[in-house]
């Protein structure tokens, strides 16, 4: 799954939001610069993004499931929370590694790489949220939000 998430976050090599060196760090290139044996952050952050998206979807459609929060603007409110959460997670983890010096010193990492990865993670969580909430079958069991999507009502 590591490489699957890596390809997704790197947008299949088409849109580099952050450097190749940051990609190597997130793949788990260790502090001794020997091999990919450190924490495989791509996998961990990827799964957190998927689970948090599903959680926010469940929160709006099945847990809160309120007639007071079933408009498109409410969808965007939940989406904003999700995007912020995922941005923060993806920004903070490599940022902390940089601050603590917990990375291979042959990789050139900086704050803009952390911002880029945070942005990439936030964008993918939004895309996944759009996809999940656009499929009617996932909304079918919601009492008050089964017609709620990012564009309606």
């Amino acid at each position: 799954m590591l490489e699957v998430f890596a390809k997704i976050y790197e947008w299949f090599g088409l849109i580099p939001f952050y450097s190749k060196d940051m990609g190597d760090h997130l793949r788990g290139f260790d502090v001794t610069c020997t091999d990919y044996i450190a924490t495989p952050w791509y996998s961990y952050i990827g799964w957190i993004m998927v689970v948090s998206t599903l959680f926010v979807f469940a929160l709006q459609y099945h847990i809160v499931d309120s007639s007071r929060y079933n408009k498109a603007k409410h969808w965007w409110l939940f989406a904003l929370g999700l995007v912020l959460l995922n941005f923060l997670i993806a920004f903070a983890i490599p940022y902390n590694d940089i601050q603590d010096g917990e990375f291979c010193n042959q990789l050139k990492l900086n704050i803009s790489d952390c911002v880029g990865f945070g942005f990439s993670n936030a964008l993918w969580s939004l895309i996944l949220f759009i996809i999940v909430s656009s499929i009617p079958v996932f909304r079918a069991k919601s009492t008050n939000c089964r017609h709620t999507t990012f564009w309606k009502p």
């Binding site: 961990y44 689970v51 959680f55 469940a58 847990i63 499931d65």
Partner: peptide, 24 residues
């Protein structure tokens, strides 16, 4: 229903974020 969904999601989140590898 709502509680079951919430509990399942929380458990999954907890599992994914707390796992420690053999190398760790």
């Amino acid at each position: 229903m709502k509680f079951t969904v919430l509990a399942s999601l929380l458990f999954a989140l907890l599992f994914l974020t707390s796992c420690e590898s053999d190398l760790d």
